[in-house]
Simulated scan of single mutants.
Amino acid sequence: MLSYIPKTALRKLEDRVPQDFLCELRPVTILFLHLNFDTKDIVSFRSVLNNVNSMMQDIIRPHNGEVNKVFLFDKGCTFLCVFGLPGVKLPHESIHALQSAFQIFNSCSEIIGKIG
């Protein structure tokens, strides 16, 4: 069960922080990335989606961002990335999110261009 609790919350529990302080409101930066592509072959679609997901993780991790959700639609896929979660707060996180977005845009353009 402990594997489902975020590390920052576990540290607070281990330090015996009162549970009232485990809940908090904090500003975060959210980045929505929508990949609009149409592929008929499900195998290539799955492979492209896996490649894009790993590439995005590699880009946003150094900026302390995380992919929070992935929404799959009939015409593409939307990723919800969050910067500034508890334990990984950086100053100027919106700048980090924009830098990540530009890197992801360039990388995804190359990947999707190869399958087009």
Rank of each mutant, 00 (worst) to 15 (best):
S3W: 02
S3K: 04
S3V: 08
S3N: 08
I5P: 05
I5S: 05
P6K: 03
K7L: 09
A9G: 10
A9K: 12
K12Q: 15
K12P: 04
E14R: 06
R16F: 14
V17D: 07
C23R: 15
L25K: 13
L25G: 12
R26P: 07
T29Q: 06
T29S: 14
I30N: 09
L31M: 12
F32D: 14
L35I: 13
L35N: 09
L35G: 02
L35T: 05
N36F: 03
F37N: 09
T39D: 07
K40G: 09
K40A: 05
I42M: 01
S44D: 04
S44P: 01
F45S: 11
S47W: 00
S47C: 07
V48A: 11
L49H: 11
N50L: 11
V52T: 10
N53I: 02
N53M: 02
M55C: 12
M56Y: 11
Q57G: 06
D58Q: 12
I59T: 02
I60H: 03
R61C: 13
R61K: 11
R61Q: 14
P62L: 03
N64Y: 04
G65M: 03
E66F: 09
V67Q: 08
N68Y: 09
V70F: 01
V70C: 04
F71P: 00
F73V: 02
F73M: 02
F79T: 02
F79G: 01
L80S: 02
C81T: 02
C81W: 04
V82K: 00
G84N: 03
L85H: 02
V88A: 13
K89A: 07
L90K: 15
L90Y: 05
P91A: 06
P91F: 09
H92D: 15
H92V: 09
I95R: 10
I95P: 00
L98R: 09
S100P: 07
A101D: 01
F102K: 14
F102A: 15
Q103K: 12
S109C: 11
S109P: 01
K114C: 06
K114V: 07
